[in-house]
């Protein structure tokens, strides 16, 4: 079975939303900044509820914020 991981576009979406800070996103999503840092770096895969809350903050569909990609693709993107 192919190895896949959850990837995200949070950094890009924050940039597109007037350079929203991690703290601002954390406050809006109801979590700590530390959690946003971990999600953004791919160190933590959020629960479905938190993923929806983050997507809701950006006003984007879930698949625009998170994607389930092959591990090789993440390595290629750097």
């Amino acid at each position: 079975m192919e190895k896949r991981r959850i990837s995200n576009n949070i950094r890009k979406l924050r940039f597109n939303n007037d350079e929203m800070t991690q703290q601002q996103l954390a406050d809006k999503a109801g979590v700590t900044r530390q959690t946003i840092v971990a999600v953004e770096k791919g160190k933590y895969s959020p629960s479905l509820e938190l993923a929806f809350r983050i997507a809701l903050v950006f006003g984007s569909p879930l698949e625009e914020v998170f994607s389930y990609v092959l591990e090789e693709e993440i390595k290629e993107d750097g």
Partner: peptide, 9 residues
């Protein structure tokens, strides 16, 4: 001090 304890914590 973080006032909330979220799912990661």
């Amino acid at each position: 001090i973080p006032s909330i304890s979220d799912e990661l914590d």
